[in-house]
Simulated scan of single mutants.
Amino acid sequence: MGSSESDETLETYGAEIGAGSRVREWMLIEGDRVLIAVVLSIAVFFLLLFFHGVGIVSFVNPNSVTRVASGMIAGTFSLVTLVVSINQLILSQEFASAGKAQERLEAVVEFRDDIADETDVSASPVSPTRLLELLLASISQDADALADAVSDHDEEVRRSIVRYANTVRAETNRVDETLEHTSFGTFRAVFAATTYDEDWQLYVGTHFRNAYEDSLSPTAIDRLEDLLESLKLFHIAGEQFKTTYLQRELTRFSQLTVYAGVPSILSAIFIGLLYADITGPSINIAALPYVVIGLIVVVLSPLALLVSFILRTTTITRRTASTGPMLPQKGPEEGPFDVSYGDDW
C-alpha cells in the first residue's frame, strides 16, 4: 500500500448516519414520535382549512361527505387490524419452548462471558447503556495500546496505525459522552450506539492486519487483534439492543394506534351523523367546516402515528443495514484502499 493511500482520510468513509438538515433529521430520527404525529395532524388541519378558504373543497354536499366518512371508517378498521397483526408478529418472537429458551439464555450468557473476558471484569453490567460504555472503554484502551505498540515501527506503518487508533479513540469518546447522559429505553441511547461506525473500523483494522502482517511486531498484532475483537463484541451488542428497541417501539406504536383507533372511528361515525338530517347539516353552516375538519384530523390520527413511527424505524434499519464490514449503503468505489484480486498489498 502506497503512502498516498495511507494519507486517505479514513474517517470520511463511515456509515452515513445523522447526515442532512436538522429539520429533516428531527422529523426522521430525533423527534418524539407522538409529537411528530401531532405536527402532521396540525398540518393536515391547516391544509384543509386553506383548501376550503380558496374554494377547492366544500362540506355542504351530504352525499360526498358521508361517502368520505364511510371510507375513513373502513380505512381505520383496516389500519387497526394491520397494527394488531404487527403486534402479534412481535409477540410471537417472545414465545419459545423450553429448549429454545435454554438455547437463547445460553447464547446470552456466553456473550456476556466473552465481554467480561475481553474487558477484564468479573461480570458484565446488566444495564445495556453501561454495557456499551464498558465496551467503548475497552475499544479506546485497545486503540491506545495499539498506538503505543507501533511507536518504534517504520514511519509509514506507524503513521497509518496511529491515525487509525486516533480515529477510533475520537469516535468512542463522542459516543461515550452521549451514553453517559442517557438510559436504555430512550431513543437517544440506541441512536448513539447505531451511529458508532464499528463496521468501518473493523474493515480498516482487518486491512491493516493483513497489509502490515510482515511489518508489525507480534505485540502490535496482538493489540490489533484485541481491538478487532472488542469492535466485534460492540457490533453484536449494538445489533441486539437495536432489535430490542425496535420491538419496543413497534409495540408502543401498536398500543397508541389502538388508543387512537376508537376515537377515530367514533369521529368518522359522527361526521356521517352530522348530515343525517334530511334538511341538511345539523349545526350552523358557518361552524360546519371547522367541525368537520377537526373530526377528519381525529379520524386520521392513527395514520399520522403510522407515518411518524415508520419513518424512524425504516430510516434506522436502512442506515444500519450491514453485517460486520459489509456495507450495502456504500458505493463500489468508496474506501481508502484499492483492493483487487491477487493484490498483495
Rank of each mutant, 00 (worst) to 15 (best):
V84F: 11
R188E: 13
A321Q: 13
R130L: 12
Y196P: 01
I269E: 10
K232N: 11
G280I: 13
R209G: 13
V204D: 02
D343I: 03
S64E: 11
L228Q: 09
R318S: 13
P325G: 09
I139S: 03
P325C: 11
I161W: 01
S124A: 15
V108P: 03
E198P: 01
Y290S: 14
S183E: 08
L300M: 14
H153K: 08
D277V: 07
T194I: 15
Q255S: 11
D152A: 14
L10Y: 09
S140Q: 11
V175N: 11
L216I: 07
T206G: 11
S340M: 10
L227H: 05
L228V: 04
A211Y: 01
R209H: 14
V339E: 04
R223W: 04
T315D: 12
T194A: 03
P281H: 06
S78E: 03
A147E: 04
L28A: 07
L224C: 06
A170Y: 14
A193H: 07
V292P: 04
R248M: 09
A43W: 05
E5G: 05
G238W: 00
L136V: 10
N166Q: 12
I265V: 14
D277N: 15
F95A: 13
K330C: 02
R163V: 05
S3T: 08
L202D: 02
R104F: 09
